[in-house]
């Protein structure tokens, strides 16, 4: 037979549990959750000095991007030269 104090104890336990579950539901909190991934990638990128999650600009793994930018810049400079430099028509 269950003692009355044990029954009370059990009921109190359940009441507290219900209160916590009712007031602090994770569903609402999860909906408001921020975007964690970008921050995590940034931290790993910084701490690994660009070895992981390279962003394409600040790391040595992005040499092809530097090369591309260099080529585009050269092309623009050449175009500007052709267009802007006066041509001797004599």
């Amino acid at each position: 037979m269950t003692e009355p104090s044990e029954t009370n104890d059990e009921a109190e336990n359940q009441a507290v549990r219900d209160l916590v579950r009712r007031t602090l539901s994770n569903d609402a909190l999860a909906k408001e959750a921020p975007d964690i991934l970008r921050g995590v990638q940034r931290r790993i990128r910084i701490r690994s000095r660009g070895k992981f999650f390279a962003d394409g600009w600040s790391t040595t793994q992005a040499r092809h991007a530097y090369l591309l930018i260099a080529l585009i810049t050269l092309l623009l400079a050449a175009t500007a030269y052709v267009v802007l430099v006066p041509v001797d028509v004599r």
């Binding site: 999860a30 921020p34 964690i36």
Partner: peptide, 28 residues
């Protein structure tokens, strides 16, 4: 896991900013 981890850290810390920072640190 991001939502579950954020929810857990939020309940443990009671502050959204601390929870977000901590959740990121968990994955790091």
């Amino acid at each position: 896991y991001e939502r579950r981890v954020f929810a857990l850290t939020a309940r443990m810390m009671g502050s959204r900013a601390e929870a977000e920072d901590l959740a990121q640190e968990v994955f790091v």
